[in-house]
């Protein structure tokens, strides 16, 4: 077994939305910055950059995580999904469609984080109650909508999947 050493940069391989990337990164680069700057995938937004606002939420190996609280090197070998990977070509993901239909966004800055959190929420609770939706999305901040239409949009998708 090769002995692990301390390093200041490292070459990593990640799969993002089904596409392979290999890049050398400084070890202190945050995963959120890696996704935006190194990969040019700018749907992932950065609000607070210290794990409070939820704007940078992505899916890593099937679970929602805050990409501002991970270093890119920690994602080496991981499978990531960002908002860019949600739609099927020109067909919006059901959650995106529901956000559209229910007017669940205004300025849109927080939206990608909400959508990725909602993906994980519905994955874990396919039939959430309103309270479970509120809890599941409580880690995401929105300063425009007052949340009511966001909850409605997620409820709409949950109901669709039941019928």
């Amino acid at each position: 077994m090769a002995e692990t050493q301390f390093a200041e940069s490292q070459t990593i391989r990640v799969r993002v939305n089904g596409q392979e990337y290999e890049r050398e990164v400084p070890v202190r680069r945050l995963l959120a910055d890696f996704i935006r700057h190194d990969l040019g995938l700018t749907a992932t937004h950065l609000g607070c950059e210290h794990g409070v606002c939820g704007a940078c939420t992505i899916i890593m190996d099937g679970e929602s995580v805050r990409s501002c609280l991970l270093f890119a090197v920690q994602a080496d070998g991981a499978e990531l999904q960002t908002l860019e990977g949600l739609a099927d070509g020109d067909d919006m993901h059901p959650l995106q469609q529901a956000f559209w239909d229910n007017h669940a966004l205004q300025c849109g800055f927080c939206t990608s984080g909400f959508l990725m959190s909602a993906v994980d929420l519905l994955d874990k609770h396919p039939r959430p109650s309103e309270e479970e939706i509120r809890h599941g999305l409580s880690g995401n901040l929105c300063r425009c909508t007052g949340y009511a239409n966001i909850i409605k949009a997620v409820q709409a998708v949950a109901e669709q999947s039941q019928s």
């Binding site: 692990t4 301390f6 200041e8 490292q10 070890v27 202190r28 680069r29 945050l30 270093f71």
Partner: peptide, 17 residues
């Protein structure tokens, strides 16, 4: 925003850590 520079290691075993 980024942290001040540091060195990083990701061991594979507790002994190595």
């Amino acid at each position: 925003m980024k942290p001040a520079p540091f060195k990083y290691a990701r061991p594979d075993s507790v002994d190595e850590a």
